[in-house]
Amino acid sequence: MALLLKDGAVAENSWLAIDDEAVTVPEGPVIVSLERWRRDRAALSARNTPLGVRLKSDQLAGEVAADLDRFTLVALEFPVFRDGRAFSTARELREHHGFTGEIRAVGHVLPDQYQFLVRTGFTSVEVADTAKLESWRHALSEISVAYQAALTDDTPLSNLRRRVGTVG
């Protein structure tokens, strides 16, 4: 059973991921693929509940930029943790497209990437492997200094350096 993490702690997941093939879309907040969104745009827009869209790693921010006001959540997929495209997608969603909703990491991510996720604009992480939960809890407090500007509102220390990772 996958867990949802927010701010380094387990959080309740109120979202339901919908298969592309599912005929009926249940009530409540749902996440659909970009393909499904494009196919069922009118029907999905007519619903009166929050909508989320899930992007594959090669579906970049520009693909949903024009529709962002329809989404409360954007889920970015990591097919494997080494595929780091979603870090750029998250940052572009925030910085260029002004998206203020939830950005969720889904797929194969490691605790060792948690701080990078937060600093590029992710708000939540779907953790498939609960065996690593201790490492996830620890991950945001491991490093307290960063050397570059990022999405989080870090406190500048001096030169290029900032204080980060206050959660933990």
């Binding site: 943790f81 080494r82 595929d83 780091g84 870090f87 750029s88 940052r91 990437q113 701080q115 990078f116 996720l117 600093r119 590029t120 490093i143 960063a146 050397y147 570059q148 990022a150 030169n159 290029l160 350096r161």
Partner: peptide, 16 residues
């Protein structure tokens, strides 16, 4: 040195 610091654990560019 500036580029060294900037690139150190860069959150966006560590899984290129």
């Amino acid at each position: 040195e500036i580029m060294r610091q900037w690139s150190t654990l860069h959150p966006e560019f560590t899984f290129l």
